[in-house]
Amino acid sequence: MMTVGLFVPCYVDQFYPKAAIATLELLEKFNVKVSFPAKQTCCGQPMANSGFSHLTQASDELFTEGFAEFDYIVCPSGSCVLHLKDHLHSVKHPQKAEEIRSKIYELVEFLVDILQVQDLKARFPHKVGVHQSCHGLRGLKLAQMTELVAPGFSKPVHLLNMVDDLEIISLSRKDECCGFGGTFCVTEEAVSVKMGKDRVADHVLNGAEYITGVDLSCLMHMEGILKRQGSMVQIIHIAEILNAN
């Protein structure tokens, strides 16, 4: 049986446990042996994207030790996965770190590419807007990017299409950034919020009841704006939809 180490990013662990639970349950539905190593915290991205990549050594070592033993590592966040794929290094176990970089998957790409899920038995009777988080999109290539002249595809939409009674709404800007951007959301507060407001408006005007995506960081930012606006539109991680009955 395939073993999977579940990596739950720091802020998902603390603020969005439901998404992590849904990820765990979803993976277990497909006969995967999932473990959650207790010795895990953060991928190190908050430091690295702020220019402090030299401060990620401790979390890198922790990650490498905690996850080396699994066949695959799965995480419900495109951004954290991309960071680890690109930047995980270990002084103590360089080989293990390198292996992790090639066997770590964002949840959606794991379901589509590794488990090759064809059928989901999920139901979510709502109008849903799909937010294409940038790191999942342009980093992990979970979907085709509008900038390129190339055939279209979308792994998240491929899975969402298996969910009963779910309607995907169309957007005027298919893959524009929401403006979260890690520490950018506070260091460049004005632009960050404006980007978020514009992204949210696109979903709201096109009739979304829920905004979903592969990254809760983006969704948390948009949720903050929706709540401040007093909007009824909610955010939900894609794992929760794919696991909804």
């Binding site: 603020f15 959650f36 507060e189 978020g196 903050g224 709540k227």
Partner: peptide, 29 residues
């Protein structure tokens, strides 16, 4: 708090995933 200037804070849940996991799956540590 620059986050709060134009955005609400996420609602803090009762327990984190690691707390839930420890209880539900009887994980040691």
């Amino acid at each position: 708090n620059p986050w709060y200037h134009q955005r609400e804070m996420p609602a803090p849940p009762e327990q984190s995933f690691r707390e839930w996991y420890k209880k539900q799956r009887n994980n040691k540590d």
